[in-house]
Design a protein around this nucleic acid. Sequence first.
DNA 1: TTAGGGTTAG
Length: 523
Amino acid sequence: MYAKCGAIDAAAKVFDHLHVKDQVSWNTMISGFDQNGFSKQSLSSFCLMLRNDIQPSNYAIISTLSSLSDIVMCRQVHNLVLKHGMSGDIVLENALLSSYAKSGEMDSCECLFRKMADRRNGVSWNSMISGYIQNGLMQKAMDFVWFMIHNGPKMDGFTFATVLSACASIAALDSGMEIHAFGIRSHLETDVVVGSALVDMYGKSGRIDYASRVFESMNSRNEFSWNSMISGYARHGNGDKALKVFREMQQWGQEPDLVTFVGVLSACSHAGLVEEGSKYFESMKNHGLVPQMEHYSCMIDILGRTGKLNEMEDFIKKMPVRPNNLIWRTVLVACRRSKDGAKSGIWKQASEMLLELEPENPVNYVLISSMYAYRGRWEDVAKTRTAMRTLPVKKEAGRSWVTLHDGLHVFVAGDRSHPNTEEIYAKLHVLIQKIRDEFALYDIDMETKEELLSYHSEKLAVAFVLTRSCRVPIRIMKNLRVCGDCHSAFCYISKIVGRKITLRDCNRFHHFENGKCSCGDFW
DNA sequence: TTAGGGTTAG
Protein backbone atom coordinates (compact mmCIF):
# COMPACT_ATOMS: atom_id res chain seq x y z
CA MET A 1 0.00 0.00 0.00
CA TYR A 2 2.75 2.43 1.02
CA ALA A 3 4.76 1.68 -2.15
CA LYS A 4 1.70 2.16 -4.36
CA CYS A 5 0.96 5.53 -2.72
CA GLY A 6 4.49 6.72 -3.41
CA ALA A 7 5.53 6.49 0.26
CA ILE A 8 8.53 4.30 -0.51
CA ASP A 9 10.36 5.24 2.71
CA ALA A 10 7.45 4.01 4.81
CA ALA A 11 7.26 0.85 2.71
CA ALA A 12 10.99 0.20 3.22
CA LYS A 13 10.63 0.73 6.98
CA VAL A 14 7.78 -1.79 7.24
CA PHE A 15 9.80 -4.22 5.11
CA ASP A 16 12.88 -3.86 7.35
CA HIS A 17 10.81 -4.64 10.45
CA LEU A 18 9.29 -7.82 9.02
CA HIS A 19 10.40 -10.85 11.04
CA VAL A 20 9.87 -13.25 8.20
CA LYS A 21 10.46 -12.06 4.65
CA ASP A 22 8.95 -14.43 2.13
CA GLN A 23 9.10 -14.36 -1.67
CA VAL A 24 6.03 -12.10 -1.94
CA SER A 25 7.36 -9.49 0.49
CA TRP A 26 10.65 -9.30 -1.42
CA ASN A 27 8.75 -9.02 -4.70
CA THR A 28 6.56 -6.24 -3.33
CA MET A 29 9.58 -4.30 -2.10
CA ILE A 30 11.51 -4.71 -5.37
CA SER A 31 8.59 -3.66 -7.56
CA GLY A 32 7.82 -0.80 -5.12
CA PHE A 33 11.31 0.61 -5.63
CA ASP A 34 10.97 0.16 -9.39
CA GLN A 35 7.57 1.87 -9.62
CA ASN A 36 8.79 4.83 -7.59
CA GLY A 37 11.80 5.35 -9.85
CA PHE A 38 14.42 3.92 -7.48
CA SER A 39 16.02 1.54 -9.95
CA LYS A 40 19.31 1.18 -8.05
CA GLN A 41 17.50 0.21 -4.86
CA SER A 42 15.34 -2.20 -6.83
CA LEU A 43 18.44 -3.95 -8.18
CA SER A 44 20.24 -3.99 -4.82
CA SER A 45 17.17 -5.47 -3.09
CA PHE A 46 17.12 -8.17 -5.74
CA CYS A 47 20.81 -8.96 -5.11
CA LEU A 48 20.18 -8.98 -1.34
CA MET A 49 17.34 -11.40 -1.85
CA LEU A 50 19.64 -13.77 -3.75
CA ARG A 51 22.26 -13.49 -0.98
CA ASN A 52 19.57 -14.43 1.55
CA ASP A 53 19.05 -17.66 -0.40
CA ILE A 54 15.52 -16.73 -1.43
CA GLN A 55 14.61 -18.37 -4.72
CA PRO A 56 13.91 -15.53 -7.20
CA SER A 57 10.40 -15.71 -8.60
CA ASN A 58 9.41 -14.47 -12.04
CA TYR A 59 7.68 -11.50 -10.34
CA ALA A 60 10.97 -10.35 -8.75
CA ILE A 61 12.94 -10.82 -11.95
CA ILE A 62 10.41 -8.89 -14.03
CA SER A 63 10.37 -5.96 -11.60
CA THR A 64 14.15 -5.87 -11.52
CA LEU A 65 14.39 -6.08 -15.31
CA SER A 66 11.99 -3.21 -15.92
CA SER A 67 14.43 -0.76 -14.33
CA LEU A 68 17.56 -2.26 -15.93
CA SER A 69 19.33 -0.57 -18.82
CA ASP A 70 22.77 -2.04 -18.25
CA ILE A 71 23.81 -4.74 -20.66
CA VAL A 72 26.06 -6.64 -18.22
CA MET A 73 23.33 -6.88 -15.58
CA CYS A 74 20.80 -7.70 -18.25
CA ARG A 75 22.87 -10.68 -19.44
CA GLN A 76 23.37 -11.88 -15.85
CA VAL A 77 19.64 -11.81 -15.19
CA HIS A 78 19.04 -13.62 -18.49
CA ASN A 79 21.50 -16.34 -17.38
CA LEU A 80 19.64 -16.60 -14.08
CA VAL A 81 16.39 -17.08 -16.00
CA LEU A 82 17.94 -19.87 -18.06
CA LYS A 83 19.52 -21.46 -14.94
CA HIS A 84 16.19 -21.62 -13.13
CA GLY A 85 14.41 -22.95 -16.17
CA MET A 86 12.14 -19.95 -16.39
CA SER A 87 12.37 -19.31 -20.13
CA GLY A 88 8.93 -19.84 -21.55
CA ASP A 89 7.26 -17.28 -19.29
CA ILE A 90 6.01 -14.77 -21.86
CA VAL A 91 5.83 -11.82 -19.43
CA LEU A 92 9.39 -12.49 -18.30
CA GLU A 93 10.68 -12.80 -21.85
CA ASN A 94 8.96 -9.56 -22.83
CA ALA A 95 10.61 -7.84 -19.87
CA LEU A 96 13.96 -9.20 -21.13
CA LEU A 97 13.23 -7.87 -24.63
CA SER A 98 12.57 -4.39 -23.32
CA SER A 99 15.67 -4.45 -21.07
CA TYR A 100 17.91 -5.51 -23.96
CA ALA A 101 16.37 -2.71 -26.04
CA LYS A 102 17.03 -0.16 -23.29
CA SER A 103 20.65 -1.38 -23.14
CA GLY A 104 20.99 -0.75 -26.90
CA GLU A 105 21.31 -4.49 -27.67
CA MET A 106 18.91 -4.91 -30.56
CA ASP A 107 20.85 -7.96 -31.84
CA SER A 108 20.08 -9.77 -28.56
CA CYS A 109 16.46 -8.64 -28.88
CA GLU A 110 16.16 -10.06 -32.38
CA CYS A 111 17.76 -13.32 -31.26
CA LEU A 112 15.39 -13.69 -28.30
CA PHE A 113 12.38 -12.63 -30.40
CA ARG A 114 13.21 -15.39 -32.91
CA LYS A 115 13.53 -17.97 -30.11
CA MET A 116 10.17 -16.93 -28.65
CA ALA A 117 8.52 -18.11 -31.90
CA ASP A 118 4.88 -19.05 -31.17
CA ARG A 119 4.82 -17.62 -27.67
CA ARG A 120 5.06 -14.00 -28.91
CA ASN A 121 2.14 -11.74 -28.12
CA GLY A 122 1.28 -8.12 -28.90
CA VAL A 123 3.56 -6.89 -26.13
CA SER A 124 6.54 -8.72 -27.65
CA TRP A 125 5.96 -7.08 -31.05
CA ASN A 126 5.44 -3.66 -29.48
CA SER A 127 8.62 -4.04 -27.42
CA MET A 128 10.58 -4.75 -30.61
CA ILE A 129 9.15 -1.69 -32.37
CA SER A 130 9.79 0.66 -29.47
CA GLY A 131 13.27 -0.89 -29.10
CA TYR A 132 14.17 0.03 -32.68
CA ILE A 133 12.82 3.53 -32.13
CA GLN A 134 14.67 4.03 -28.82
CA ASN A 135 17.87 3.11 -30.61
CA GLY A 136 17.26 5.51 -33.50
CA LEU A 137 16.66 2.72 -36.06
CA MET A 138 13.60 4.38 -37.60
CA GLN A 139 13.65 2.60 -40.94
CA LYS A 140 13.98 -0.80 -39.24
CA ALA A 141 11.09 0.12 -36.93
CA MET A 142 8.89 1.04 -39.90
CA ASP A 143 9.87 -2.13 -41.79
CA PHE A 144 8.98 -4.11 -38.67
CA VAL A 145 5.58 -2.38 -38.50
CA TRP A 146 4.71 -3.42 -42.06
CA PHE A 147 5.96 -6.92 -41.23
CA MET A 148 3.66 -6.91 -38.17
CA ILE A 149 0.68 -5.76 -40.24
CA HIS A 150 1.10 -8.76 -42.54
CA ASN A 151 2.46 -11.41 -40.17
CA GLY A 152 1.81 -10.37 -36.59
CA PRO A 153 -1.09 -9.89 -34.20
CA LYS A 154 -3.59 -7.05 -34.63
CA MET A 155 -2.05 -3.72 -33.68
CA ASP A 156 -3.36 -2.20 -30.48
CA GLY A 157 -3.32 1.33 -29.03
CA PHE A 158 0.20 0.81 -27.69
CA THR A 159 1.49 -0.04 -31.17
CA PHE A 160 -0.19 2.95 -32.77
CA ALA A 161 1.05 5.42 -30.17
CA THR A 162 4.62 4.12 -30.45
CA VAL A 163 4.66 4.12 -34.23
CA LEU A 164 3.02 7.54 -34.55
CA SER A 165 5.65 8.96 -32.23
CA ALA A 166 8.34 7.50 -34.50
CA CYS A 167 6.67 9.05 -37.57
CA ALA A 168 6.51 12.37 -35.70
CA SER A 169 10.20 12.32 -34.88
CA ILE A 170 11.21 11.99 -38.53
CA ALA A 171 8.20 13.98 -39.81
CA ALA A 172 7.16 11.05 -42.00
CA LEU A 173 3.76 12.45 -42.96
CA ASP A 174 2.88 9.77 -45.51
CA SER A 175 3.62 6.86 -43.16
CA GLY A 176 1.85 8.69 -40.34
CA MET A 177 -1.27 9.10 -42.48
CA GLU A 178 -1.24 5.42 -43.43
CA ILE A 179 -0.96 4.45 -39.76
CA HIS A 180 -3.81 6.89 -39.00
CA ALA A 181 -5.98 5.14 -41.59
CA PHE A 182 -5.19 1.75 -40.00
CA GLY A 183 -6.07 3.24 -36.61
CA ILE A 184 -9.48 4.40 -37.85
CA ARG A 185 -10.18 0.93 -39.25
CA SER A 186 -9.21 -0.57 -35.87
CA HIS A 187 -11.51 1.91 -34.04
CA LEU A 188 -8.56 3.20 -32.06
CA GLU A 189 -8.86 6.88 -32.86
CA THR A 190 -10.90 7.36 -29.67
CA ASP A 191 -7.96 6.24 -27.49
CA VAL A 192 -6.68 9.40 -25.80
CA VAL A 193 -3.03 8.35 -26.12
CA VAL A 194 -3.39 7.52 -29.82
CA GLY A 195 -5.24 10.83 -30.36
CA SER A 196 -2.47 12.79 -28.63
CA ALA A 197 0.18 10.97 -30.65
CA LEU A 198 -1.75 11.88 -33.84
CA VAL A 199 -1.91 15.56 -32.87
CA ASP A 200 1.83 15.51 -32.23
CA MET A 201 2.61 13.65 -35.47
CA TYR A 202 0.60 16.04 -37.66
CA GLY A 203 1.99 19.06 -35.81
CA LYS A 204 5.55 17.90 -36.36
CA SER A 205 4.96 16.88 -39.97
CA GLY A 206 3.78 20.31 -41.11
CA ARG A 207 0.03 19.65 -41.14
CA ILE A 208 -1.08 21.77 -38.21
CA ASP A 209 -4.55 21.91 -39.81
CA TYR A 210 -4.90 18.12 -39.51
CA ALA A 211 -3.49 18.26 -35.96
CA SER A 212 -6.18 20.76 -35.04
CA ARG A 213 -8.89 18.67 -36.69
CA VAL A 214 -7.89 15.53 -34.74
CA PHE A 215 -7.60 17.58 -31.55
CA GLU A 216 -11.08 19.09 -31.95
CA SER A 217 -12.62 15.67 -32.56
CA MET A 218 -11.13 14.07 -29.44
CA ASN A 219 -13.72 12.96 -26.85
CA SER A 220 -11.29 13.10 -23.98
CA ARG A 221 -8.01 14.96 -23.65
CA ASN A 222 -5.13 14.66 -21.23
CA GLU A 223 -2.12 16.92 -20.61
CA PHE A 224 -0.29 15.28 -23.52
CA SER A 225 -3.09 16.20 -25.94
CA TRP A 226 -3.17 19.85 -24.83
CA ASN A 227 0.62 20.15 -24.75
CA SER A 228 1.00 18.61 -28.22
CA MET A 229 -1.50 21.10 -29.67
CA ILE A 230 0.10 24.11 -27.93
CA SER A 231 3.65 23.12 -28.94
CA GLY A 232 2.43 22.38 -32.45
CA TYR A 233 1.11 25.92 -32.87
CA ALA A 234 4.26 27.34 -31.27
CA ARG A 235 6.47 25.37 -33.67
CA HIS A 236 4.47 26.77 -36.58
CA GLY A 237 4.98 30.32 -35.33
CA ASN A 238 1.29 30.71 -34.55
CA GLY A 239 1.57 32.31 -31.11
CA ASP A 240 -2.00 33.58 -30.89
CA LYS A 241 -3.53 30.17 -31.55
CA ALA A 242 -1.15 28.51 -29.07
CA LEU A 243 -2.22 30.94 -26.36
CA LYS A 244 -5.89 30.49 -27.27
CA VAL A 245 -5.55 26.72 -26.77
CA PHE A 246 -3.74 27.39 -23.48
CA ARG A 247 -6.71 29.47 -22.24
CA GLU A 248 -9.15 26.77 -23.38
CA MET A 249 -7.07 24.20 -21.53
CA GLN A 250 -7.61 26.03 -18.26
CA GLN A 251 -11.32 26.57 -18.93
CA TRP A 252 -11.56 22.84 -19.58
CA GLY A 253 -10.10 22.24 -16.10
CA GLN A 254 -6.80 20.73 -17.21
CA GLU A 255 -3.97 21.95 -14.98
CA PRO A 256 -0.90 23.07 -17.01
CA ASP A 257 2.47 21.42 -16.28
CA LEU A 258 6.13 22.25 -16.97
CA VAL A 259 5.88 21.07 -20.57
CA THR A 260 2.83 23.29 -21.17
CA PHE A 261 4.83 26.34 -20.13
CA VAL A 262 7.74 25.51 -22.45
CA GLY A 263 5.17 25.52 -25.29
CA VAL A 264 3.46 28.72 -24.09
CA LEU A 265 6.73 30.62 -23.58
CA SER A 266 8.19 29.51 -26.90
CA ALA A 267 4.92 30.61 -28.58
CA CYS A 268 5.35 34.05 -26.98
CA SER A 269 8.96 34.13 -28.08
CA HIS A 270 8.21 33.38 -31.76
CA ALA A 271 5.33 35.88 -31.76
CA GLY A 272 7.41 38.60 -30.05
CA LEU A 273 4.96 38.78 -27.12
CA VAL A 274 7.24 40.11 -24.37
CA GLU A 275 4.57 41.28 -21.93
CA GLU A 276 2.52 38.10 -22.23
CA GLY A 277 5.64 35.95 -21.91
CA SER A 278 6.66 37.65 -18.67
CA LYS A 279 3.11 37.37 -17.34
CA TYR A 280 2.94 33.63 -18.08
CA PHE A 281 6.42 33.05 -16.65
CA GLU A 282 5.37 34.76 -13.40
CA SER A 283 2.11 32.78 -13.32
CA MET A 284 3.95 29.46 -13.12
CA LYS A 285 4.24 29.71 -9.35
CA ASN A 286 0.45 30.10 -9.07
CA HIS A 287 0.25 26.58 -10.50
CA GLY A 288 2.81 25.26 -8.02
CA LEU A 289 5.47 25.00 -10.73
CA VAL A 290 9.14 25.92 -10.33
CA PRO A 291 10.64 27.22 -13.61
CA GLN A 292 13.38 24.97 -15.03
CA MET A 293 16.33 25.97 -17.21
CA GLU A 294 14.17 25.56 -20.33
CA HIS A 295 11.73 28.18 -19.03
CA TYR A 296 14.52 30.62 -18.17
CA SER A 297 15.97 29.98 -21.61
CA CYS A 298 12.62 30.79 -23.27
CA MET A 299 12.41 34.07 -21.33
CA ILE A 300 15.93 35.02 -22.38
CA ASP A 301 14.98 34.17 -25.95
CA ILE A 302 11.90 36.41 -25.70
CA LEU A 303 13.96 39.34 -24.39
CA GLY A 304 16.85 38.75 -26.80
CA ARG A 305 14.63 38.33 -29.84
CA THR A 306 12.98 41.69 -29.21
CA GLY A 307 16.34 43.40 -28.78
CA LYS A 308 15.93 43.96 -25.04
CA LEU A 309 19.53 43.07 -24.24
CA ASN A 310 19.73 45.12 -21.02
CA GLU A 311 16.59 43.48 -19.64
CA MET A 312 18.05 40.15 -20.67
CA GLU A 313 21.22 40.85 -18.73
CA ASP A 314 19.22 41.87 -15.63
CA PHE A 315 17.08 38.76 -15.93
CA ILE A 316 20.17 36.53 -15.94
CA LYS A 317 21.64 38.32 -12.91
CA LYS A 318 18.42 37.72 -10.98
CA MET A 319 18.21 34.01 -11.81
CA PRO A 320 18.07 31.97 -8.58
CA VAL A 321 20.07 29.15 -10.21
CA ARG A 322 23.46 29.21 -11.94
CA PRO A 323 22.93 29.64 -15.71
CA ASN A 324 23.94 26.55 -17.68
CA ASN A 325 25.19 26.02 -21.23
CA LEU A 326 21.66 26.23 -22.67
CA ILE A 327 21.20 29.72 -21.18
CA TRP A 328 24.55 31.03 -22.42
CA ARG A 329 23.95 29.67 -25.90
CA THR A 330 20.58 31.42 -26.02
CA VAL A 331 22.39 34.63 -25.03
CA LEU A 332 24.90 34.22 -27.87
CA VAL A 333 22.13 33.56 -30.38
CA ALA A 334 20.27 36.67 -29.12
CA CYS A 335 23.43 38.79 -29.40
CA ARG A 336 24.12 37.55 -32.91
CA ARG A 337 20.59 38.37 -33.98
CA SER A 338 20.55 41.85 -32.43
CA LYS A 339 22.05 44.92 -34.08
CA ASP A 340 23.61 45.93 -30.78
CA GLY A 341 24.61 42.39 -29.88
CA ALA A 342 28.22 42.86 -30.84
CA LYS A 343 28.46 46.00 -28.69
CA SER A 344 26.90 44.32 -25.67
CA GLY A 345 29.32 43.09 -23.02
CA ILE A 346 27.27 40.03 -22.16
CA TRP A 347 28.20 38.12 -25.29
CA LYS A 348 31.83 38.04 -24.14
CA GLN A 349 30.76 36.64 -20.78
CA ALA A 350 28.51 34.12 -22.53
CA SER A 351 31.29 32.96 -24.86
CA GLU A 352 33.75 32.53 -21.98
CA MET A 353 31.22 30.60 -19.91
CA LEU A 354 30.34 28.36 -22.84
CA LEU A 355 33.95 27.47 -23.55
CA GLU A 356 34.39 26.67 -19.86
CA LEU A 357 31.21 24.60 -19.56
CA GLU A 358 31.35 22.82 -22.92
CA PRO A 359 34.86 23.04 -24.39
CA GLU A 360 34.12 20.19 -26.80
CA ASN A 361 30.89 21.39 -28.40
CA PRO A 362 31.61 22.70 -31.93
CA VAL A 363 28.30 24.62 -32.05
CA ASN A 364 29.71 27.06 -29.50
CA TYR A 365 32.84 27.69 -31.58
CA VAL A 366 30.77 28.37 -34.68
CA LEU A 367 28.56 30.85 -32.81
CA ILE A 368 31.52 32.61 -31.21
CA SER A 369 33.49 32.86 -34.44
CA SER A 370 30.53 34.28 -36.34
CA MET A 371 30.14 36.97 -33.66
CA TYR A 372 33.80 37.88 -34.07
CA ALA A 373 33.21 38.03 -37.83
CA TYR A 374 30.34 40.50 -37.32
CA ARG A 375 32.72 42.71 -35.32
CA GLY A 376 35.40 42.41 -38.01
CA ARG A 377 37.82 40.77 -35.56
CA TRP A 378 39.37 38.44 -38.12
CA GLU A 379 42.28 37.37 -35.97
CA ASP A 380 39.89 36.14 -33.30
CA VAL A 381 37.81 34.42 -35.97
CA ALA A 382 40.92 32.56 -37.11
CA LYS A 383 41.89 31.68 -33.51
CA THR A 384 38.43 30.29 -32.73
CA ARG A 385 38.38 28.28 -35.95
CA THR A 386 41.84 26.87 -35.18
CA ALA A 387 40.80 26.02 -31.61
CA MET A 388 37.78 24.22 -33.02
CA ARG A 389 39.96 22.16 -35.36
CA THR A 390 42.68 21.30 -32.86
CA LEU A 391 40.62 20.55 -29.74
CA PRO A 392 39.09 17.09 -29.35
CA VAL A 393 35.81 18.55 -30.53
CA LYS A 394 32.94 16.11 -30.94
CA LYS A 395 31.55 15.84 -34.46
CA GLU A 396 27.90 16.84 -34.62
CA ALA A 397 25.63 14.25 -36.19
CA GLY A 398 23.88 16.89 -38.32
CA ARG A 399 21.54 15.09 -40.68
CA SER A 400 18.90 16.24 -43.13
CA TRP A 401 16.39 13.96 -44.73
CA VAL A 402 13.60 13.98 -47.22
CA THR A 403 10.84 11.45 -47.87
CA LEU A 404 9.91 10.75 -51.48
CA HIS A 405 7.73 8.01 -52.92
CA ASP A 406 10.72 5.63 -52.94
CA GLY A 407 11.52 6.11 -49.26
CA LEU A 408 13.70 8.11 -46.95
CA HIS A 409 16.90 9.83 -48.21
CA VAL A 410 19.34 10.95 -45.52
CA PHE A 411 22.31 13.33 -45.95
CA VAL A 412 25.13 14.60 -43.76
CA ALA A 413 27.37 17.58 -44.62
CA GLY A 414 29.61 16.80 -47.58
CA ASP A 415 27.88 13.44 -48.02
CA ARG A 416 28.97 11.36 -51.02
CA SER A 417 27.27 8.11 -50.08
CA HIS A 418 24.02 8.59 -52.00
CA PRO A 419 23.82 6.49 -55.19
CA ASN A 420 23.04 9.66 -57.20
CA THR A 421 25.87 11.68 -55.68
CA GLU A 422 27.32 12.94 -58.97
CA GLU A 423 23.95 14.19 -60.18
CA ILE A 424 23.18 15.83 -56.80
CA TYR A 425 26.50 17.70 -56.71
CA ALA A 426 26.07 18.78 -60.32
CA LYS A 427 22.67 20.27 -59.43
CA LEU A 428 24.12 21.96 -56.34
CA HIS A 429 26.96 23.46 -58.39
CA VAL A 430 24.41 24.92 -60.81
CA LEU A 431 22.50 26.44 -57.87
CA ILE A 432 25.66 27.86 -56.34
CA GLN A 433 26.68 29.37 -59.67
CA LYS A 434 23.23 30.96 -60.01
CA ILE A 435 23.47 32.38 -56.49
CA ARG A 436 26.89 33.86 -57.39
CA ASP A 437 25.65 35.35 -60.67
CA GLU A 438 22.26 36.57 -59.58
CA PHE A 439 23.04 37.93 -56.18
CA ALA A 440 26.66 39.01 -56.65
CA LEU A 441 27.77 38.34 -53.12
CA TYR A 442 30.38 41.09 -53.10
CA ASP A 443 29.22 42.70 -49.88
CA ILE A 444 29.46 39.51 -47.85
CA ASP A 445 32.65 38.68 -45.99
CA MET A 446 34.64 35.61 -47.05
CA GLU A 447 33.70 33.62 -43.96
CA THR A 448 29.97 33.98 -44.55
CA LYS A 449 30.40 33.43 -48.27
CA GLU A 450 32.17 30.12 -47.71
CA GLU A 451 29.48 28.99 -45.28
CA LEU A 452 26.73 30.09 -47.62
CA LEU A 453 28.11 28.10 -50.51
CA SER A 454 29.29 25.00 -48.63
CA TYR A 455 27.75 21.56 -48.88
CA HIS A 456 25.62 21.44 -45.73
CA SER A 457 23.28 18.50 -45.37
CA GLU A 458 20.08 20.47 -46.02
CA LYS A 459 21.49 21.88 -49.26
CA LEU A 460 22.38 18.38 -50.44
CA ALA A 461 18.83 17.29 -49.64
CA VAL A 462 17.26 20.13 -51.62
CA ALA A 463 19.65 19.54 -54.54
CA PHE A 464 18.67 15.87 -54.49
CA VAL A 465 14.93 16.70 -54.71
CA LEU A 466 15.66 19.04 -57.62
CA THR A 467 17.29 16.17 -59.54
CA ARG A 468 13.88 14.46 -59.54
CA SER A 469 11.25 15.61 -61.98
CA CYS A 470 8.35 15.73 -59.46
CA ARG A 471 6.97 19.23 -58.91
CA VAL A 472 5.54 18.83 -55.41
CA PRO A 473 6.56 21.33 -52.70
CA ILE A 474 9.92 20.43 -51.18
CA ARG A 475 9.87 19.29 -47.54
CA ILE A 476 13.22 18.83 -45.84
CA MET A 477 13.82 17.83 -42.20
CA LYS A 478 16.88 18.51 -40.09
CA ASN A 479 17.76 17.19 -36.65
CA LEU A 480 19.73 20.30 -35.61
CA ARG A 481 18.98 23.99 -35.96
CA VAL A 482 19.28 25.50 -39.41
CA CYS A 483 22.27 27.85 -39.42
CA GLY A 484 21.87 31.49 -40.45
CA ASP A 485 23.90 31.03 -43.64
CA CYS A 486 21.89 28.06 -44.83
CA HIS A 487 18.79 30.08 -44.03
CA SER A 488 19.96 32.82 -46.40
CA ALA A 489 20.90 30.24 -49.03
CA PHE A 490 17.41 28.75 -48.89
CA CYS A 491 15.91 32.19 -49.44
CA TYR A 492 18.01 32.50 -52.61
CA ILE A 493 17.25 28.96 -53.77
CA SER A 494 13.46 29.38 -53.31
CA LYS A 495 13.64 32.41 -55.61
CA ILE A 496 15.86 30.72 -58.20
CA VAL A 497 13.77 27.56 -58.51
CA GLY A 498 10.39 29.25 -57.98
CA ARG A 499 9.17 26.56 -55.63
CA LYS A 500 7.97 26.48 -52.04
CA ILE A 501 10.52 24.90 -49.70
CA THR A 502 9.62 23.86 -46.17
CA LEU A 503 12.48 23.11 -43.81
CA ARG A 504 11.75 21.72 -40.36
CA ASP A 505 14.61 21.84 -37.90
CA CYS A 506 14.70 20.66 -34.29
CA ASN A 507 13.03 23.86 -33.27
CA ARG A 508 10.40 24.93 -35.76
CA PHE A 509 9.20 25.21 -39.35
CA HIS A 510 10.69 27.58 -41.93
CA HIS A 511 8.69 28.21 -45.11
CA PHE A 512 10.70 29.70 -47.99
CA GLU A 513 8.99 31.25 -50.98
CA ASN A 514 10.08 33.85 -53.54
CA GLY A 515 13.33 34.61 -51.75
CA LYS A 516 11.77 35.10 -48.32
CA CYS A 517 11.22 33.02 -45.19
CA SER A 518 7.89 33.29 -43.42
CA CYS A 519 9.39 33.41 -39.95
CA GLY A 520 12.42 35.63 -40.42
CA ASP A 521 13.78 33.70 -37.50
CA PHE A 522 17.16 32.13 -37.82
CA TRP A 523 20.11 31.21 -35.82
C1' DT B 1 -0.23 -9.60 -1.87
C1' DT B 2 3.82 -8.90 -6.11
C1' DA B 3 4.78 -8.78 -13.15
C1' DG B 4 5.89 -6.87 -19.43
C1' DG B 5 4.77 -2.75 -24.25
C1' DG B 6 2.24 3.76 -25.39
C1' DT B 7 1.77 9.94 -26.28
C1' DT B 8 4.04 16.06 -24.91
C1' DA B 9 9.42 20.36 -24.35
C1' DG B 10 14.54 21.18 -24.60
